[in-house]
Deep mutational scan, measured.
Amino acid sequence: MEVRTIKVFTTVDNINLHTQVVDMSMTYGQQFGPTYLDGADVTKIKPHNSHEGKTFYVLPNDDTLRVEAFEYYHTTDPSFLGRYMSALNHTKKWKYPQVNGLTSIKWADNNCYLATALLTLQQIELKFNPPALQDAYYRARAGEAANFCALILAYCNKTVGELGDVRETMSYLFQHANLDSCKRVLNVVCKTCGQQQTTLKGVEAVMYMGTLSYEQFKKGVQIPCTCGKQATKYLVQQESPFVMMSAPPAQYELKHGTFTCASEYTGNYQCGHYKHITSKETLYCIDGALLTKSSEYKGPITDVFYKENSYTTTIK
């Protein structure tokens, strides 16, 4: 009895394709271990004539594949690729409408935090270190965002349907971005203890939790000093293409032309909904596939993004 075979390709990165001759009487799992086709788990399936010449994702289970996976995804987590594939199996079914010149995501599976993050990423200057993220990001900007969303979920250790947080998501993504040249110098002034300067680099240099107003941050924000008295913390120097200011959701007025974009969060910790506000020729609110415009805006804002380049204080 002759062994019926077909020729397929296996890959971990969709760049390096490895030619395989597979036995049609055995499952993919018996031949390769966990195997995925377009995100779908085909591990328990036997090869079919229609699979001839198709590319299958496999887990990096030998040295060659491990090197290829690390170079593309910059992670050695053995569960990463499987999590990416199972997320992709959902995100490829989502709709990605162009809204006001940006790629958004039609609401499904509690994905409003991903839509808000995706919209924000198209408006701030950011370059990702893992080629996987950078490639998928370019495709997302062009309207094909399924891979990018699935990668975000995998890097953030999230599953489809789980509630997510924009600030946490951005923080994970910033860790995989090139923020080497970003720098922030802060000064804390206390009447009792004097003053202390701190220099922050990388992710810490672009994120701040405690106030939404970048102007206020430049002037000074009140913080408790270690001595128990009130101290003032203010920005001395900022070198970065953008800054992200966050605070627990509270009524906040966004003035046209003073910011790049913002995240609105309605609801409580267990259950809520994100919308995205962007400042173009007027203010726009993007909620999944829905767009509304207004000249002014007041609502429960939790993150505001500002364009920056270089700032030095005039406070002496």
Rank of each mutant, 00 (worst) to 15 (best):
R4I: 09
V8K: 05
F9V: 09
T10H: 10
V12Y: 09
T19Y: 12
T19S: 15
T19L: 12
M24R: 12
M24Q: 11
M24G: 14
M24D: 07
Y28E: 01
Q31L: 14
G33D: 05
G33I: 03
L37D: 14
L37R: 11
D41G: 07
V42C: 14
T43P: 05
T43M: 12
K44A: 06
I45G: 13
I45N: 11
K46P: 14
P47A: 12
H48A: 15
E52M: 12
K54N: 15
V58R: 08
P60V: 06
N61S: 12
N61G: 13
D62M: 10
D63A: 09
D63G: 09
T64E: 15
L65W: 07
V67M: 11
A69K: 05
Y72L: 11
T76L: 13
S79H: 12
S79E: 15
S79M: 12
F80L: 06
L81P: 13
Y84G: 03
M85V: 07
M85C: 11
L88H: 06
N89L: 09
T91L: 05
K92E: 08
K92P: 03
K93F: 11
K93W: 08
K95A: 11
Y96C: 03
P97Y: 05
P97E: 14
Q98R: 15
Q98M: 15
Q98D: 07
L102M: 15
S104P: 02
K106G: 15
K106N: 14
A108L: 04
A108T: 07
N110P: 02
N111A: 03
L114F: 05
A115N: 05
A115V: 05
L118F: 11
L119K: 04
T120G: 04
Q122H: 02
I124Q: 03
K127N: 14
F128W: 15
N129D: 12
L133P: 03
Q134R: 14
D135W: 09
D135A: 11
Y138C: 15
R139V: 08
R139S: 13
R141V: 12
G143A: 05
G143H: 05
E144G: 09
E144R: 10
A146D: 10
C149W: 02
A150N: 00
A150Q: 02
L153I: 09
L153Y: 11
L153C: 07
K158L: 04
T159D: 11
L163N: 04
R167G: 04
E168L: 15
M170A: 01
Q175T: 09
N178C: 14
N178H: 08
D180W: 08
C182Y: 07
R184F: 03
V185E: 05
V185S: 05
L186W: 11
C190V: 02
C190K: 02
K191G: 13
T192M: 13
Q195E: 14
T198A: 12
L200N: 08
K201G: 11
G202P: 01
G202V: 02
E204L: 07
E204F: 07
E204G: 13
A205S: 10
A205I: 00
M209Q: 13
T211C: 13
Q216H: 10
F217W: 05
K219C: 10
Q222L: 10
I223R: 06
I223N: 07
P224I: 13
C227M: 00
Q230A: 12
Q230P: 12
T232F: 13
T232A: 06
Y234I: 12
L235Q: 01
Q237G: 07
Q237T: 14
S240G: 07
P241R: 08
P241L: 06
F242A: 05
S246F: 00
E253L: 15
K255R: 14
T258W: 05
F259S: 00
F259Q: 00
T260E: 15
T260M: 13
T260N: 06
T260Y: 06
A262L: 00
S263H: 12
Y265R: 00
N268T: 14
Y269W: 15
Q270S: 15
C271K: 10
C271I: 14
K275A: 09
K275E: 00
H276M: 07
T278Y: 13
I286D: 02
L291S: 14
L291V: 13
L291Y: 09
S294R: 13
E296R: 12
Y297E: 00
D303R: 01
E308V: 11
E308N: 15
N309T: 09
Y311W: 12
T313Y: 13
T313C: 11
T314P: 12
